[in-house]
Design a protein around this nucleic acid. Structure first.
Length: 432
RNA sequence: UCCUCGGUAGCUCAAUGGUAGAGCGAUCGGCUGUUAACCGAUAGGUUGGGGGUUCAAGUCCCUCCCGGGGAGCCA
């Protein structure tokens, strides 16, 4: 017999053909002389129907004995059948167990979060987890395509860094041949020099924050994508950030409908986010929040609840800009019309998913940046090379950063960031 | 770090200070269209650790450990 090994995703294209599958047993129901086997091969799942009358004695014994998550091989005819989830099922002609699985910890019934997190390596096999991580895969590919199509150059920034970008308290420290080194919490400072070489650049990789944050919106290790563009000023930056989000949302809607269905995601919510985003200034946002009864004063940073109130009010992503310079990073360019304000922007996702983008136009004047570094009591020696960007042919430039997990959480409707990354790293948790 | 809730069978949870239980899972048996199948049976426990109160503690008190949710900070 000729080999006709196919993946479950493509079974529909093989109606009435005999095919071979290799995979794992997702679940089983047996009723006397007929068995229903849910087979998963990584590309999808299919129900295989095994009748005693049509099988060898050995194959039927394996059908009776097979346990959840056993490794199996199966041959059968692909049949279109309305009764089957997915539209097709497999009428088994041969079946065998390659590895009989012992009692699998994760059953089809309920489990607590602590238990599931301890079994993250096994939890990955569950349908919701597979769907969420498949969306993450699509988002990551979308990010790379977005920048590649717009002729950005990928500049990988280092993970081991000699000094802090914005203070050391939130950095993971490690030993580097006897000297302290820190895990990167942003690639931005390394990206800025690269704009003078490539014009439009981005980095995409893991970042590390030793913040003792214990919320559903925080990981200690998360992935961030950061574009940085020469000669791009603040207005253009806002447009780029908005187009970026719209493009990614559109791509997820177009290519992940199956996964979003598994996750029971409300698509209508996401469709709103392909339209232009409302844009307001920080000052306007504070006024609005006060009207809504939030206790916030001009000059204070927006709290988590403030973000949620704003997101609910607009019911789609909202772009907030022109923050008080005092609460923002030292490198942000001041507004020419009002130097108390910084040309920074945040994009807040709707439905309580919080800040997904933060960015700014950067200070490009050498002496002014030097002054700012001194004001912030930052170690001048560590920023010598960063100042060189301004010393040797400076230009106005801007960039932003987007947290991949927060974006994926918003797309999938998953409440906690831990389910948007294969192996989450959280406060005090690094197993498995 | 702070606030708050919790830790009992493999899992999810019950149990007035008075004999530790159920459902699911597992195992065995039955069933030819099941969708978290169903029916019958069996096995399964140092109640997170330590100390205390009491005739008696899963239950009350102290302490430590671990976990969930939230806050601050951030993406």
């Amino acid at each position: 017999m000729s080999e006709n090994t196919v993946s479950i995703r493509h079974l529909k294209e093989h109606a009435d053909q005999v095919v071979h599958l290799k995979g794992w047993l997702n679940g089983k129901r047996r009723s006397g002389k007929i068995g229903f086997l849910q087979i998963r091969d990584g590309s999808g799942t299919v129900q295989a129907v095994a009748s005693r009358a049509e099988l060898s004695e050995q194959a039927w014994e394996d059908v009776k004995a097979v346990t959840q998550e056993s490794t199996v091989h199966v041959s059968g005819t692909v049949k279109v059948d309305e009764r089957a989830p997915g539209g097709v099922e497999l009428h088994v002609t041969d079946f065998g167990v390659d590895d009989l699985c012992g009692e699998f910890p994760i059953t089809p019934k309920e489990h607590g979060t602590a238990f599931l997190m301890e079994h993250r390596h096994l939890w990955l096999r569950s349908s919701r987890q597979r769907a969420a991580l498949a969306v993450r895969n699509e988002v990551c590919q979308g990010i790379r395509d977005f920048f590649y199509e717009r002729e950005f150059t990928l500049i990988d920034s280092p993970i081991l860094t000699p000094a802090a970008c914005e203070g050391t308290s939130t950095l993971f420290e490690t030993d580097y041949f006897g000297d302290p080194a820190f895990l990167s919490q942003s690639g931005q400072l390394y990206l800025e020099p690269a704009i003078s070489a490539f014009g439009k650049v981005y980095c995409f990789g893991p970042t590390f924050r030793a913040e003792k944050s214990k919320t559903r919106r925080h990981l200690t290790e998360f992935w961030m994508v950061e574009p940085e563009v020469a000669f791009l000023e603040f207005g253009g930056l806002c447009d780029l950030a908005e187009e970026f989000i719209q493009t990614l949302v559109g791509r997820v809607l177009e290519r992940c409908s199956e996964h979003l269905e598994v996750l029971e995601r409300d698509i209508a919510q996401l469709e709103k986010s392909t339209h232009p985003f409302p844009r307001i200034t920080y000052t306007k946002a504070v006024e609005l929040l006060k009207e809504k009864g939030q206790s916030i004063e001009w000059g204070e940073d927006l709290g988590g609840e403030d973000e949620t109130v704003l997101a609910e009010h607009f019911d789609q992503p909202v772009l907030i800009s022109h923050f008080p310079a005092a609460i923002k990073a030292f490198y942000m360019e001041p507004d020419a019309d009002d130097p108390k304000l910084a040309l920074g922007l945040d994009i807040i996702a709707p439905e309580g998913y919080g800040e997904i983008i933060g960015g700014s136009q950067r200070i490009h004047d050498h002496d002014f940046l030097l002054e700012r570094i001194k004001e912030h009591d930052l170690p001048l020696e560590a920023f010598k090379w960063y100042l060189d960007v301004r010393k040797y042919g400076t230009c106005p430039h801007s960039g932003f950063g987007m947290g991949v997990e927060r974006f994926v959480a918003w797309m999938t409707g998953v409440k906690h960031l831990r389910e948007t990354i294969p192996y989450p790293r959280m406060l005090y948790k690094i197993y498995p």
